[in-house]
Simulated assay, not measured.
Amino acid sequence: MSSSSSNLKTLLLERLVRGEISQEEYDRMVGLIDEHQPVDAVTDPSDPYVSVTGLPTDPGGASSIVGQLQPLTADDRLGKYTLVEKIGVGGMGIVWKARHPIGEGDVVIKVLPPELSRDAVHLEKFRASFEIVRRLNHQFICPIYDLEHDPRVGYYLVMKFLEAETFDVYRRRLINEAGRLRFNRLLKLLEQVAIALDAAHRQKIVHRDIKSSNIMVSPSGEQVWVIDFGLAAEMRSTMALLSKERMESSGTYPYMAPEQWKGQRQTAATDQYALAILTYEMLTGRLPFEGDATVLCRCALEESLPTIPKVPDSVNDALTRATSKEPDARFQTCREFVRALVTENQKRPKSNHSKEPTDPEEQYQLGLKYYEGVEVPQDYEKAVYWFQKAA
């Protein structure tokens, strides 16, 4: 039995003793864990893509993080950066907007939990993950600049400040303003996310925590950035191992694939599963499954994704395959999943143009019209190529 399964059973037992779940619910969940846990599954702490899963006694964890930090205020300096304003508390700690001293633009500083500084092994593992992620140079991935240390607060991350809003906030704003989020506009954004994920996967980097709040969208809706690439998940796994008070997973419960719940190795297919859940959320305005960790674990292991009414069959078919219980049954790449959302008829309707344009600007404008949903060039692949090359 893997250590993650043992931890999950222990926490379920604690909930049973506290009266938070019934004996019947406890027996059913333990049976599910045993049924879906392979005999030879081993949680290897040295594998950066294996998570420690469990039910948190402190789901947010934010209060315990904040309480252990020396207070900072606006205009304080961390290294060469001047703090401007506190943005909030995220999965990795307190988040600040800060200013570069020589006018190179604003940055985001994430002050990490102080426990990280007290364990050399996990600190070194986090450093290694940071160095890998920092090498990701992609237009759809938020750049990470530095991992620094300050004696007042410990370690902190520095990354680019984005004039953007999270995917879910962008969706709500667009619906409030325009009454709907056009399917082709959504496809454009999802394809950018998929391109970013596939680029990382080619370098053997898995995000492990894809969700709407980890996708930033520019105000114009033309650009997305994937943030917290792998580091938030790494931090949660580290804190789960170091903390005696709570046990957290490497992902966010509603988006977690079956292999994450079972503490198995996470791959590119894990990110694809979360991207499919995100797609469902953006199409419907709600998550496919809701409830506490016990309910969400059961749904991930046993339930099929609910069908979305009034959408092409290709959408539901693609979502079903991308959320298959077995990772090998999903699409080969995230981009293949996004492409599968669109039927051949949707991809290649008749064009109003009698012939393909040869001027690069005309090609770009035609590709742009595809993404805006105005019309689709006859050659779908060329339209995508024209737009991405020009953009």
Rank of each mutant, 00 (worst) to 15 (best):
V158T: 11
E85F: 01
D58P: 01
Q346A: 06
R298V: 07
G88D: 09
Y371A: 09
L319K: 00
G103V: 02
D34L: 11
D292C: 08
S324W: 02
H353P: 00
L162Q: 10
V153P: 00
M235A: 02
D198Y: 07
C297L: 15
F229D: 10
N352R: 15
H201C: 11
Y255P: 09
E356K: 09
M247K: 14
A74I: 01
T10C: 04
A178M: 09
R173L: 12
E361N: 10
N176R: 11
R173N: 14
R171M: 08
E115C: 06
R321A: 05
I277G: 09
E24D: 14
R298H: 15
D40V: 07
S218R: 07
K9D: 05
E259K: 01
V108F: 03
L275G: 07
T294S: 15
T270V: 07
V315K: 00
P56G: 03
P101H: 10
V52G: 06
L116P: 11
S237C: 15
G31I: 12
L189C: 12
L296E: 02
D44V: 11
A196V: 05
V50R: 06
T57M: 10
I144N: 04
A128E: 05
W261C: 04
A318T: 04
L181F: 12
K86V: 04
M282F: 07
Q260I: 08
V295R: 05
P309M: 13
A329D: 15
R265K: 15
K110T: 13
S249K: 05
P306F: 08
K110E: 13
M92Y: 10
R15M: 07
S220K: 12
T238M: 14
V169Y: 05
T73H: 13
Q388A: 13
K9H: 04
E115R: 08
R134S: 05
E248Y: 08
K347V: 04
D58Y: 11
V52E: 10
L275I: 07
Y155K: 00
P219E: 05
L78Y: 03
R236W: 08
R152I: 03
F331D: 03
E259V: 05
V376R: 14
I87F: 08
G251V: 03
V108Q: 00
N176Q: 14
G91R: 01
V376D: 00
L32T: 03
H100E: 12
L116T: 11
K262V: 11
